[in-house]
């Protein structure tokens, strides 16, 4: 196996300063191989979002090992209504990552954006629209395209389908799976929804109280959960179905 794209060992992280400083990650260790999808599951406050922020380099108060072997890992946010600039057109939003990456020629940027559209299932007519003129599913497609167009190989997906209805969820998950194959991506998939994680992920890490309590292949965790917390999560998810 080649070098892992994310390597975390005994990572600790804190939030706040002085007396209010609170530990949110405790001795977290995990690896993400190229082309792999790792689900991080836990309830809110479990530290899974902090873990994602650490991988993205947004948290500085950390100790331990944190290696990310991908230029500029990107994130797809939960709420596609908030993650796209309401004042800009889709064309501008998709060109901006290229502009930032130093593609100076306008024609080249436009061409690369146009070439990228079919990959995420968007049409050229969408380019002139603003986010408010798109449906939730279309917005999430734009957000995914914006995250990928710079050529990042590592994408953090923060509950990317939780804000969408069930049929759209399936479409976007399908799209993410296809993109992973076509572009050779690795995903760190943050979610509280075990059913969604089961569809997309190769491995799962279960987090609670800032610690990873159980980690393994998706099937194994689902069929033979060992930790009490994992069992509780599974039972809760099954009860909903």
């Amino acid at each position: 196996m080649s070098e892992p794209i994310v390597h975390i060992a005994r990572l600790n992280s804190w939030y706040g300063r002085g007396k209010g400083r609170k530990q949110v990650l405790r001795d977290v260790s995990l690896k993400l191989a190229p082309g792999e999808v790792l689900g991080v599951v836990g309830e809110s406050g479990s530290g899974k979002s902090t873990l994602a922020k650490c991988v993205l380099g947004m948290v500085t108060d950390i100790t331990g090992t944190l290696e990310v072997n991908s230029p500029r890992p990107q994130m797809v946010f939960q709420d596609p209504y908030g993650s796209l600039n309401p004042a800009k057109t889709v064309g501008w939003i998709l060109e901006e990552p290229l502009r930032t990456a130093g593609v100076k020629d306008k024609g080249e940027r436009r061409q690369r954006v146009r070439d990228f559209l079919p990959l995420v299932g968007l049409e050229e007519e969408h380019l002139a629209r603003r986010p408010a003129q798109l449906s939730g599913g279309q917005r999430q497609r734009v957000a995914i395209a914006a995250a990928l167009i710079q050529g990042s190989r590592l994408i953090v997906l923060d509950e990317p389908v939780s804000a969408l209805d069930v049929t759209l969820q399936a479409q976007i998950l399908r799209l993410l799976a296809d993109l992973k194959e076509e572009l050779g991506l690795s995903y760190l998939f943050i979610s509280h929804d075990l059913a969604v994680v089961y569809q997309l992920c190769d491995r799962v890490a279960v987090m609670t109280g800032g610690e990873i309590v159980e980690e393994g292949d998706v099937d194994e965790i689902y069929d033979h959960p060992r930790h009490a917390y994992t069992k509780k999560l599974l039972a809760a998810s099954l009860a909903l179905d």
């Binding site: 993205l56 947004m58 890992p73 990107q74 796209l84 600039n85 004042a87 901006e96 995250a147």
Partner: peptide
């Protein structure tokens, strides 16, 4: 906001975020 975070992750400069990304929203 998420779109500002997202711009930071892409490596957009702070001044560009302030005047090109956020400013048009407050016109």
């Amino acid at each position: 906001r998420d779109f500002v975070q997202s711009a930071r992750l892409m490596g957009v400069s702070q001044l560009r975020i302030i005047f090109i990304h956020i400013l048009p929203n407050i016109w």
